[in-house]
């Protein structure tokens, strides 16, 4: 069993039970309290937790405990299956456009890790023999363009910028033309951090999307995000439409329940994990590992 810590708690809770037979509503209710706590402590959104607990309970109550399992193990098995269903089981790959350049666009809240992730993604794609172009569309944050240029230098990828006096919509269009002329097959657009409730800046993203039709819009989410992750993901998805998620700062000790929240409200896969500040600290995302991390195992 992968969920050892919670597993133990559940075994204790259910130890008073006779070892076999059907699970009663009362047994399941007690066990679910532990699951609920573990998920809330991991920052999984309250509503997501509620739905999850209901699904697991509905399945478990009245279930005949399998010969080979204790009641605790049986409940864990159901939790495990439902969690996997929610997180997605397989790894989700990046997609490419049939007609180059393939355009990726990074969006998200302030400080989530977009600019750093642009560099990481460029390096990742270079390893796959792609020729990326980084595009500086953050014209607001002090020294954002300089930051992207430095990052581009670290991975030896060109950076397209037009300073901070031109609109991001215009910059992104010009960048794609530039990529076409230079024969660059991949375009990675860095956008300014913004709040999901900032109407003007959200509209700017819609305009960039309409202008360059990105292959994928990737929502960059800080893995330390708390209950608000659902609002953020929901709003970005509703207003812009996202294709995938990149979870950053997983090198910390957060349980990372935001992953579950974001996945639950958008139904979009988490594609990569940021594992450090350095440009090569970047990995494909493994939903199963994340599930056990969230449950504190």
């Amino acid at each position: 069993m992968i969920f050892e810590g919670l597993s133990e708690k559940l075994q204790n809770t259910l130890s008073k039970l006779k070892s076999k037979g059907k699970l009663t509503e009362k047994d399941v209710k007690e066990a679910m309290r532990e699951v609920k706590l573990a998920l809330l402590e991991a920052d999984v959104n309250f509503k997501v937790v509620k739905d999850f607990i209901k699904r697991v309970s509905d399945r478990a109550v009245g279930d005949e405990v399998m010969e080979s399992l204790t009641p605790g193990q049986h409940v864990i098995k159901i939790v495990n299956e439902e969690l996997t269903a929610l997180m997605g089981s397989g790894q989700s790959k990046l997609t490419f456009s049939s007609k180059p350049p393939t355009i990726y666009m990074m969006v998200g809240l302030q400080g989530s890790g977009k600019t750093t992730t642009c560099g990481k993604l460029a390096k990742h794609l270079k390893k796959q023999q792609k020729n990326p172009l980084l595009v500086a569309c953050d014209i607001y944050r002090p020294a954002a363009i300089q930051q992207l240029k430095t990052v581009g230098g670290q991975v030896d990828v060109p950076v397209f910028s037009m300073g901070d006096g031109t609109s991001p919509v215009h910059i992104s269009k010009a960048a794609v033309e530039h990529a076409n002329r230079q024969g660059l097959d991949t375009v990675i657009i860095d956008t300014a951090g913004r709040l999901h409730i900032d109407e003007l800046l959200m509209e700017e993203l819609q305009q960039i999307k309409a202008a360059v039709k990105p292959q994928e819009i990737l929502l960059v989410v800080d893995s330390m995000t708390g209950q608000d992750a659902v609002n953020v993901a929901e709003q970005f998805h509703e207003q812009i439409g996202i294709d995938g998620v990149i979870l950053t700062k997983l090198d910390g000790d957060t349980r990372g329940g935001a992953a579950l929240s974001v996945r639950a409200v958008t139904q979009k896969p988490i594609k990569f994990a940021g594992m450090g500040e350095k440009i090569d600290e970047f990995e494909p995302f493994h939903p199963d590992r994340m599930a056990s991390r969230i449950l504190g195992m």
Binding site: L109, D222, T225, G226, D253, A258
Partner: peptide
């Protein structure tokens, strides 16, 4: 501290 942060802020 970032107000968006969850329980990890305590740590």
């Amino acid at each position: 501290l970032d107000a968006t942060t969850g329980q990890n802020a305590l740590q």
